[in-house]
Design a protein around this nucleic acid. Structure first.
Lengths: 372, 372
DNA sequence: GTTAACTGCTTAAACAGTTTACCAGACCGT
DNA sequence: ACGGTCTGGTAAACTGTTTAAGCAGTTAAC
């Protein structure tokens, strides 16, 4: 297929291309001729300062000049260069989202929902969003600080952080706006927006106890996260309140992933074959648990009820559909974005919010079976 | 705060500040004192041009000066301001990802995987990634062009685009680097990287036919996408090759979502209650189909085999685990990123690639049942 | 009728780098 | 001793905005 002559005998195509008598000449690729404020000013017979003020709706410009300049702007198709704007003004109007360096973190619907909320709201507030992954190298080279120091961004969202991530303190120390999204650090005084994990866990325990379950296990993820500890505490407290057996051996770590949920299920079944309900700290672990249970010949919810947490998209469509706690992740992201923008604009008082959660009853839970 | 006397009782600070008796005074929050190239130059007793050349490893700088300047840079903790860098140089080193305006697009693992690949590779290549959603307003206001014109970005990825998205032509017309990620336009000569949908579909058809299926239905998404048409064409061709019944009524639109997959399944069952296999154009529709089948009392794969497409994360853990075509979405994203960066750097010859796909056999498929 | 305030715009100094053109001194051959 | 080529560096122009300070001309105040 060596086709050295391109488009032979094609005389019409170029003309057909249409619109603006093409053949835009050699000017460097990247679009025609860039128009600067200078040229607008010249054509309008005013100074660049005037053009700038017109663009910023400065009231010191007369109506007449406004219109005259705007007309020229439209005529020339002028677009202000935002690098220059940001350089001389205070703001970049860009926010960064720092994601944990998990394998393919973006494809996790949990982070996806948060991200959706952040991006949509940022857009509405006139901000751009930049993505970063908190890899070890990234942090070691202090790139998270560089983002601010080199004026890439005005503010930062931290997702999926926990007590082991000491870098979260750096931002506050340097005075850079940052908000933790869906996690918090009671002792650190950082800005945050979270879903109400405690309330969600309470609702789960209520329904499981009401269904008559007495042998309930908890599969949880990183205990380094305050939200995970919240769930654990509620679980333990409610079991004790009900006078039921609890403790370390009724808990297993599922690392917040499907495989982990499956393995944790093995552990639990080994220690307590008579378990009748499993409460998982997120939906992915719940899915792993259900999968393993079915593999081992236990029916869900017939033999064992399973409850998840997060309410990510697919969970309404797995078999059986999963009972879970709906977290308003989209809203958490959106709200975090609003608060961060306020911070960037100079708001100084403490910023934190807790959004309500609610249980979604589906088919993975049922009244305890005979032997329970 | 009327402070008519400037810097009262401050005799030393002003002198220390250096250069132009500054009076930087109440420096706004956002980290301590920002160091500029100027100050590095002064302390090192060289010109700013020299400092700039040191930073850019210009060979015209002597080893001695290199070291001297770098020492000062480290001492002062100087970080070049990238707004100024981008303003005077050619590049911003930022790429944009344009996502379709689907409800909560980010939480779709399909886009997530592509995004992961893009971001990881961009990071390695020294580029930042910005997120945008192609909402109607966004396009109407030509914000997709503004991103380039206002020098926000050097290049752009388009995800989830199809023939209805006329804006994809705008980039090429204006000479802005853009690459289509996992879709393509045979007649448009745009840069793209795709997974090999045809080969994937061939593999699916091979296995279904080998398992003895004769009544096979296809649930597909937007026929406006070339990749979807590829799947459809292979499906039809292979059915005809095998002398089996095919046609419009053996196909249904599932809009690429779970609900759509479920509804499409209803349609198909109504038209052909004797169907023994369903081939879905993506995993979400396959999940919806399985859910509906089970709901209606048909067992998977006992009564009906189901095959998906994409191989998104959770599909190994649903019940039954889904047989599907693995698309190397992460690699597609990563490769697209490499190609886009080449384009940005001036590469001019056509850029396009097709990455291999392979079938992943799991538990949602089996040999055709008795009556088949 | 002079001073004061306001209007509407301009000038020029930031902002923080890159890059081109030039220049002084060292080195070299004749 | 003199012109030519390197070397390593500098000064200045340039990127495209914002914004503080300044300045005519008009109006209002006393």
């Amino acid at each position: 297929m060596p086709d050295s002559t391109d488009n032979p005998s094609d005389t019409t195509a170029a003309a057909v291309e249409g619109k603006a008598g093409r053949v835009l000449a050699p000017r460097r690729m990247g679009g025609g001729r860039r128009v600067s404020m200078r040229e607008v000013a010249q054509q309008a017979s005013v100074s660049v300062a005037t053009v700038s003020m017109v663009l910023n709706d400065n009231p010191r410009i007369s109506k007449a000049t406004q219109i005259k300049v705007r007309r020229i702007i439209d005529k020339l198709g002028y677009r202000p260069n935002r690098l220059a704007q940001s350089l001389s003004s205070q703001y970049t109007r860009v926010l960064a989202v720092l994601l944990p360096p998990l394998r393919h973190a973006f494809s996790d619907p949990y982070f996806g929902e948060l991200l959706s909320g952040i991006c949509d709201r940022a857009d509405r507030l006139g901000h751009k969003v930049m993505l970063e992954s908190a890899k070890p190298d990234f942090l070691r080279e202090r790139k998270h600080m560089e983002l601010f120091e080199r004026r890439f961004v005005d503010g930062m969202f931290c997702l999926g952080v926990n007590d082991r991530h000491h870098f979260v303190k750096d931002f506050a120390a340097a005075g850079f706006p940052m908000v933790c999204v869906n996690n918090y650090f009671p002792e650190l005084k950082l800005d945050y927006v979270v879903a109400d994990y405690r309330s969600g866990a309470e609702q789960v325990m209520n329904v499981l106890l009401q269904l008559g379950h007495k042998k309930i296990a908890l599969i949880n993820g990183a205990p380094e996260a305050q939200t995970a500890r919240d769930v654990y505490e509620v679980f333990t407290a409610r079991m004790q309140d009900a006078g039921l057996e609890t403790g370390e051996d009724w808990t297993a770590d599922g690392r917040f992933i499907e495989e982990g949920g499956a393995e944790a299920t093995d552990e639990i079944l080994e220690r307590h074959p008579d378990v009748t309900a499993i409460f998982a700290g997120n939906d992915k672990m719940a899915l792993g648990a259900m999968h393993r249970l079915v593999e081992l010949g236990r029916s869900v919810p017939g033999d064992v009820s399973v409850v998840g947490f997060d309410d990510i998209q697919q969970m309404a469509f797995v078999n059986p559909s999963l009972t879970t706690v709906h977290l308003p992740l989209y809203e958490v992201g959106a709200r975090a974005c609003e608060l961060l923008v306020q911070r960037v604009r100079g708001k100084t008082d403490k910023i934190s919010e807790r959004l309500a959660t609610h249980l979604v009853l589906r088919d993975s839970t049922s009244i305890v079976s005979g032997r329970g």
